[in-house]
Amino acid sequence: MSAASETAWAEWFSPEELGHFRRRRSIDRWFGRLLPVVFLVAIIPILDLVYWVSQRSLPTFTWAILTTNPTGNAGGLYGPLVGTVYLLLMGLAIAVPLGILAGLASGVFLPHPWGEVVRGAGDLLVGTPSVILGYFGYFALVLYLGWGASLLAGGVTLGIFMLPYVARTSDQAFSSVPTDLRDAALGAGARLRQYAARIAFPIALPQVLSGIFLAAAIGIGETAPLLWTALFSSYPPTQLSEPTGYLTGLIWNYFDEPPTFGTEVTLAFQAALILIAIVVAMNVIVRVLAERSRRKLEGLYG
């Protein structure tokens, strides 16, 4: 407030009132300065994490690391890398169809209160600690069904872990299709499943895909569901019934080895860097797809 306007205000308000105004304004200004700083404080750790993980892994990174198996105290990441891909693909083979079905049921088919119940169940599964999934996978699949610690048990457990993410995001995708289109389709004599297959699904597809990538990004970083179901192995899996390695498991096994022992800790950091790269790339895809679907929906709402 400049001196001139200050005198202008002084004609209308008493000094006490002006002091009150100034105090209120300065509180507001301090928050205006403080809040962006808080934002930066929240962002610094992730930059620090990426910086230091690169610092610890890039200087010794060679292509040979991607093509050789871990050997106990040295070697590369080939086996766990291939295992991660297999586990993820197997998990997606379960999570995608079942998740989309569950999302269709709650987002399109079920009448009012029941859709909400299914959504709630999905949210509860999302909120379940991942170690519980590990216990479930071990007892139910490895032990009771007798699959043994294997690629199969690990993949299925990972699929069950990812399922609620696919279900919840595809439910959202189907629910955000404008109601007008549903009314129009049903009014024109379409059946619910015709509406679902020919109208809701094409509109929701980008968002469903973005949900799948999100689930994959979360699933690829999981450790606890796999520890006793896929167990671990240094070699690429050749059979469904074999234990298999995965990048998170390699980090878990090697992270606290003494650095004098070998290159294991560095190898773990290298696995971490690869995981970060994959996850960030998937998140970018998620964002691009979500943006595309937002534009599409905006067009539909007119």
């Binding site: 929240a42 610890r56 690829i220 970083g221 450790t223 998170t248 992270f255 971490a272 998937m282």
Partner: peptide
């Protein structure tokens, strides 16, 4: 906010090894 959302994507085990060593 995009950066903050990115925090959710970092795998748990990566937070662990970063926390433990760095």
């Amino acid at each position: 906010n995009g950066f903050v959302d990115l925090l959710a994507g970092i795998p748990s085990v990566v937070y662990g090894i970063w926390g433990f060593w760095i």
